[in-house]
């Protein structure tokens, strides 16, 4: 037993964050510090927004920040990813070698493309997969029977299935939305719950390379439309006719010495 408990008590008082922190509920967005909140805000939106995303593969450094933050934003279980970064090479972060013997490597972040003509939606027997008024392709877990037809139909392989109860690392909890039950399909929701609060999707605000642009494709003034006008934007597997609202900018031309 030691003395001086009073000194220690004062000493430790400063260490308890719960002591003076607000403990009221409220959405995560409401709690954001003003600067962070401003950073995440959607630039502009029209009367009838149609949300889209643009990924600059030149700027993408394959860091998976967007993929990881998506998991904690959306409580995506272990073994599941709504968003992942593909390496256009031999293996993860490994180059392929072109005809001249030069190694090459690029990254392709891939999540739901929010197809305007979404094959997953067309095949879903229960209309669990649907497109909302703002062009976002969503899955209503309450209606999903888990037939996985949509997974077979999606050319991009971005849907994942809850084969069992969502698995979590011991002790860890996460998520700004509830997890989906076993036996249902899930995928990128374009962070629809954030858009509702005028915040851009998590992967966009968290990309340290600023390789992602999000915005209203129906608003001429949106940043995404400006860049699409200036630099174009490719669709993945364009020939499939799925009309993705996620577009990609190609890598820059390299200048040899």
């Amino acid at each position: 037993m030691r003395d001086e408990p009073d000194v220690l008590a004062t000493l430790l008082a400063g260490q308890d964050p719960a002591a003076d922190a607000p403990s009221a509920g409220g959405s995560a967005v409401d709690h954001l510090p003003p600067a962070s909140r401003a950073w995440g805000e959607i630039d502009t939106r029209s009367q009838t927004p149609r949300w889209g995303m643009l990924v600059d593969t030149e700027r993408c450094i394959g860091c998976w920040s967007c993929a990881v933050v998506c998991k904690s934003e959306n409580d995506v279980a272990l073994g599941m990813w709504w968003n992942r970064i593909l390496t256009d090479g031999d293996d993860l972060d490994t180059p392929s070698v072109d005809a001249h013997g030069h190694p090459q490597m690029e990254w392709l972040p891939l999540a739901c493309q929010h197809c305007d003509d979404a094959p997953c939606e067309k095949v879903c027997p229960t209309a669990a997969t649907y497109t909302n008024d703002e062009g976002i392709v969503l899955v209503d877990a309450d209606k999903c029977i888990g037939c996985r037809y949509c997974m077979a139909a999606c050319p991009y392989g971005v849907r994942v299935f809850n084969w069992g109860e969502p698995a979590k690392a011991p002790g860890v909890e996460e998520g700004m939305v509830p997890a989906r039950p076993a036996g249902t399909v899930e995928k990128c929701s374009l962070c629809v719950h954030r858009i509702a609060e005028n915040q851009q999707p998590s992967c966009v605000v968290s990309c340290p390379a600023q390789a992602r642009i999000f915005g209203d494709l129906n608003d001429d003034d949106s940043h995404i439309n400006q860049v699409l006008r200036d630099r174009g934007g490719d669709q993945l597997l364009e020939q499939k006719g799925t009309q993705p609202k996620v577009r990609y900018l190609p890598p820059r031309r390299r200048r040899s010495l």
């Binding site: 279980a77 272990l78 073994g79 599941m80 990813w81 992942r84 593909l86 390496t87 256009d88 090479g89 031999d90 293996d91 993860l92 490994t94 392709l108 891939l110 050319p155 991009y156 392989g157 994942v160 299935f161 809850n162 084969w163 069992g164 698995a167 993945l236 597997l237 499939k240």
Partner: peptide, 14 residues
Amino acid sequence: QVSMAPGIPAGRPD
């Protein structure tokens, strides 16, 4: 159709 590394998340832990 999109079969680049590292592939598709298997869907189970580990």
